[in-house]
Design a protein around this nucleic acid. Structure first.
Length: 396
RNA sequence: GGGAGUGUGUGCCUAGUGGCGAUGGCAAUGGGCUGUAAACCCAUGACGUGAGAAACACCGUAGGUUCGACUCCUACCACUCCCA
């Protein structure tokens, strides 16, 4: 049922063109998944998602198990049916919430006690329960339960966190029942290249259907993130999908694709849209700024989405200022369409052998650095509690 | 003409009833957001300062009472309401 096939590789970079087949259809890769944490991509109906070009969405174990509960969703026919989305769904394991809701959690080697952010009630989540919840939800791609290492962390902390992730990876495999679902492992290792290597080596021996890179974009600078990403992505099995979790900006996406990443998800296009920030072919546009008050220009003149074809920046500025729901809808619609167009143009560029050209254009649009030329700082950032963080052999 | 009430910082509303160098909200402007506790969060807006003290300024205006007044008293100004 689950299958990943690569149809073309870029000659000048690590970029790959592929297709991911699931029980709910296929998507072409590189793919960007819209984040629909609570069984909805905020502000969008499934029809609108399709129109914007979204092919695959992400749901969340932690949020859905608390409300309305995985059991209820299973009773109502599974997450696809429940949310009216018949395309592929990937579910996160809840591992990220251990990190993002750290104040409400208590972690042990076996799992995590959460205090619900909704009503304060105590809940237990471990690899077994995460697999059970994701099975009840019926997602197409299940993520292993992991420990997302915070930044900054000392080498010792990072290593301990990584071992926990490995332990939980085994437990996830033990309790995963297969069937129509695929299971992805998650590589951790923080900002230490050798730990990333170890994590990749340990996990890639295991029978996962795909591999994710976790623990990036957790507050570190691009100087750290890019070298780690560049180092880690090629360590993952060539023939299986590579998923960079929680990333990122348009520049991050082209950079990551160029080192061989196939799948992405990020809240950025949807959250930023609701906060008045658009991604466009002309770079970032803050629609709330006063300069847009009388602009008759489209949000992105080069975009053919519903928002850009029908509304002016002046109108979008107005509905944002007036706090109208439509602001979130129109802005989200555009940002998702922009991200999907970006992925489609990357796929076309790989197919036609002009990926490098597209990459440099996107990077210059956003004034971003090229992952190939960013070097890790020679010394550890001062924010790191561990002075020996600079583990990379002093390649200066 | 008589009576009652209300005036608070660069826009609007507001807390405050003797120790206040004055509360909060909205609006405004700018910034942020990366496996979503986010239609959210942060910053800025009397004078002055690197910081503190003194000086000086400060709740319609002007006086007064008081150790001390946005707060109490008097007059005036403006606005609102009621009765003629």
């Amino acid at each position: 049922m689950f299958k990943f096939a690569i149809s073309k590789k870029d000659h000048e970079s690590g970029a790959r063109l592929g297709r991911l087949h699931t029980a709910h259809g296929w998507v072409d890769t590189p793919v960007f998944m819209a984040v629909g944490t609570q069984g909805t991509v905020k502000g969008m109906t499934p029809v609108q998602l399709r129109e914007a070009g979204v092919g695959m969405v992400l749901g969340n174990t932690y949020h859905l198990m608390l409300r309305p509960t995985a059991e209820l969703i299973a009773e109502l026919g599974g997450l696809h049916r429940f949310m009216g989305w018949d395309g592929p769904i990937l579910t996160d394991s809840g591992g990220f919430q251990v990190f993002s809701l750290a104040d409400l959690t208590k972690r042990t080697d076996d799992g995590v006690t959460f205090r619900s952010h909704i009503d304060g009630a105590k809940h237990w989540l471990d690899a077994k329960r995460s697999m059970e919840v994701q099975r009840l939800l019926g997602s197409d791609v299940v993520m292993a339960f992991d420990d997302c290492t915070p930044y900054p962390s000392t080498r010792e902390q990072t290593e301990a966190s990584m071992r926990l992730t490995h332990r939980w990876a085994d437990m996830s495999l033990d309790h995963f029942q297969g069937g129509q679902q695929a299971l992805f492992g998650i590589v951790q290792g923080g900002m230490f290249p050798d730990l990333r290597e170890e994590s990749a080596r340990v996990l890639c021996e295991k029978p996962f259907h795909g591999f994710a890179i976790g623990g990036l974009s957790v507050g570190e600078s691009k100087d750290l993130m890019y070298p780690i990403l560049r180092h880690t992505a090629p360590l993952l099995p060539d023939e299986k999908p590579r998923y960079l979790m929680g990333v990122g900006t348009p520049a991050d996406l082209v950079n990551a694709v160029s080192v061989g990443v196939d799948m992405f998800d990020c809240v950025m296009p949807t959250r930023n849209a609701r906060n008045g920030y658009a991604f466009t072919s002309e770079g970032a546009v803050s629609i709330k700024k006063a300069e847009n008050k009388r602009s008759e220009k489209a949000l992105d003149p080069a975009c053919s989405c519903y928002t850009c074809k029908n509304f002016s920046r002046a109108y979008l500025n107005h509905v944002f200022k007036a706090n109208e729901i439509l602001s979130s809808v129109l802005m989200t619609y555009h940002n998702l369409a922009y991200y999907q167009d970006l992925m489609a143009s990357m796929r076309a560029a790989i197919q036609e052998g002009r990926f490098a050209e597209l990459k440099s254009r996107i990077l210059s649009t956003y004034g971003a650095e090229d992952i190939e030329t960013v070097n890790a700082p020679e010394r550890a950032p001062t924010s790191s509690p561990n002075p020996s963080v600079a583990e990379e052999p002093s390649c200066g």
